[in-house]
Write a protein that binds this DNA or RNA. Sequence first.
DNA 1: CAGTGGTCTAGACCACTGG
DNA 2: CAGTGGTCTAGACCACTGC
Lengths: 269, 269
Amino acid sequence: MSAQPPFLAVNSPTQDTPIGGLASAAQQTPAFSPLYQQIKVLILQSLQAGEWKPSASIPSEMELASRFKVSQGTVRKAIDELAAENLLVRRQGKGTFVATHAERQIQYRFLKLIPDNGDPSSEGPAQRNIIDCKRARASVEIARALAIRSGDAVLQVRRVLSFASIPTILEDLWLPAAPFKGLTAERLRDYNGPMYALFETEFDVRMVRAEEKIRAVLPDSEQCELLKTSAQSPLLSVERIAYTYNDVPMEVRRGLYVTSRHYYRNALS
Amino acid sequence: MSAQPPFLAVNSPTQDTPIGGLASAAQQTPAFSPLYQQIKVLILQSLQAGEWKPSASIPSEMELASRFKVSQGTVRKAIDELAAENLLVRRQGKGTFVATHAERQIQYRFLKLIPDNGDPSSEGPAQRNIIDCKRARASVEIARALAIRSGDAVLQVRRVLSFASIPTILEDLWLPAAPFKGLTAERLRDYNGPMYALFETEFDVRMVRAEEKIRAVLPDSEQCELLKTSAQSPLLSVERIAYTYNDVPMEVRRGLYVTSRHYYRNALS
DNA sequence: CAGTGGTCTAGACCACTGG
DNA sequence: CAGTGGTCTAGACCACTGC
């Protein structure tokens, strides 16, 4: 029985990379890519193209299987991996849904700062205070991190998050100006929910993954002022680069965390 | 065809939890547990019983399938999850192996401190300097973290890690005395490799998972001395609890990291 | 009750490793 | 070449959701 759907790449030994293969220099590997990986890429492209919006359901496994002319099990393995990467969410009996930052109102998916008692829900929602939102030009460092040219237009946001009225996080953000055209301090103030949720609904930018570099630092006088803290009390510096689909960087964020009543939590395995 | 192997729990509706189910109070759930989860527990028990040592291979999927009287696919799913949790390592064409901390000599699996250039291999192996290793009694906090009684015997270790001769990490460890009987400063000094690798080979204690609480702090005078740093330069405080199989805590570790030339790296998704 | 994801099986074939 | 894990299929049945 011919198991090879006509429009998907065949993995004959002399075939080159079917989809999105890296052009590693002296790599001898014939770049074999299993069917489910190719399906995964196709689903990813549909996500990226906006075929399915965040929190909406994607077609059923059976439907995708017949669309791609593969068995249900193969689609299943592709979806399994996308779900493991938090791009999709499976719900038994209901369907498979596009992941979102808006879903669980009472949580910031990427914020790992936890109150000392270990229960984020115990302190209620954070108070958000937008200090500033202005156009600027990308410095060399910001430009490299955002994969744009230095001097390109960026939006720069500064805000303070407070828990139980205690200023706890000072954040500076840099966003490429083009995709975020129309973002203002007012929009940020008016929106009730995580910033990444606003990015999804208003600008169709979906943060999918991020990397953080953490250091211990002392604040300068301006930072002291905003966080109502002293210049001698150490803070956690958290430098984040957040990415959309295909590892495209869309945000640089530098957070200063007060860690006298909270801690940064991390799990290792 | 009867798909139900005789010695595994049947999931009839009125059946209670087959294996390791939590006795959640007013939980209505009949606690259905799929076959592959039960297989997973059986494999876990073999690991825990020491049937297969770290870095050794476990039986092939086919062999386990016939041993447990299930299909290869079911064993495969169980192993898949154990591999995702880093308890097992799959190697195509060779077999499935018990994970170890000794394997890749040039890396500490649980250490997330990275040099500024991003390449851990660029600075060579760390110099380890054991300051102290003594018997002590568990404080209330240590006892709770280790799930023992306060006052119970513990081993307390202090050491400094240096990179390129620059003291960078000061660590204090607390270990339950019983499983680590015979551990001395000499043993620690003589062993060439990660401490968790020594724990595996000498004491049959395998660290499988850990949780860290991170804060920014200032060092006291003794800590300054050991790290050759000033009392005004902030440090990263990393409090770790490390667990063996079945979430049994086996180590409390408090690290102070100098983050002027290194950073703590974390990936979010 | 129909439709969804979740489990399980049985068998075929492929890719990789090492003797 | 035999043995391992990796992919893919086809079909059956189960658990969960909501109409």
